[in-house]
Amino acid sequence: MVIEIIEKILLLSGMVALGFIIGMFFNGFARKVTARIHNRVGPPIYQGYLDVFKLFAKKTNISHGWIFDLAALFSVAGIALAFLFLPVAGISLLSTEGDLFLILYLLAIPALGFALGAGASGNPNAAVGIMRALMLMLAYELPLVMVIVAMMVHYNTTSLATLVQMQSNFKWALFVPQFFIGAIIVDMALQGMLMEKPFDIAIAPHEIASGPMVEFGGKHLGALMLYKMMAIVVETTLFVDLFLGGGVVLSVEQYGWIAYLVNFLVWFALITFVFFLALLINAVFPRFRIEQALKFYWKYDALAALLLLIWVYAGVSI
């Protein structure tokens, strides 16, 4: 019993560590890809690790009080928590204990915690940045939840683990015609979720001095970077779990540990691919103003999602 618990704790901690490692890799990867598109050499691919290390190695770390500190704590803890509740490469550590709604709300913990600390800094730029981030959230959540609800009703489950299981043997949701459209809609929402261009007004460095992060430096910024990097992993994994079967290609019962390895590699390849798509868009677009972003999501994306809902409604009867 005790050994089981320790095993579980180790597994969970390992998963969190893995998430952070992949996240940091993604940071360097993103910069490299963007640099190559800009016809630059770009930083080394391990740059993310260097940056985080440097930030945690800073000598002084300026804080604005205990509410400010909550930001770093809650953003790192919250995003790790959300990651634990996701099925990764078919491995569901805690994802059977909650469901998709829980994950959507768990994703709000780091966001709100981050906003709390940014607000506590008392910097107006941070407040404006948070306002934009929250509005962006409202904007992209509408098409996102519409598609997710459509999927839930279609598959008659709200559990992400079950959803992944139902998509095994390459019965990916992507191959269902209506959810192919859904995947495109969610991919657009993902662009906002990742705060990549054209939806990066919330952290616009030249306009509002990187927005919410304006007062963060040293280890605080390090924690926030960890959060942002991990958020990439979580959000892309969510997409992969929803539409691409969570990266499960081999059944564990049949192939044993090789299946784990292969599934894991496929999952990694898929999230990298999803992120890569987002990077391509990011590299070539200017940014929307926030009300333009809101209108974009609620007009075009949500309209498409509405058509999807009608389609699913016509196809489903209970």
Binding site: G65, A77, A223, L226
Partner: peptide
């Protein structure tokens, strides 16, 4: 899980000491 991750974050966070500055010391 939340307690666990908060604990992890706390370790990471308490690793380095910090200095609290007043509110007015603000980038503006």
């Amino acid at each position: 899980a939340l307690i666990g991750t908060l604990f992890l974050a706390l370790i990471l966070y308490k690793w380095k000491p910090q200095k609290v500055v007043p509110h007015e010391d603000n980038y503006l």
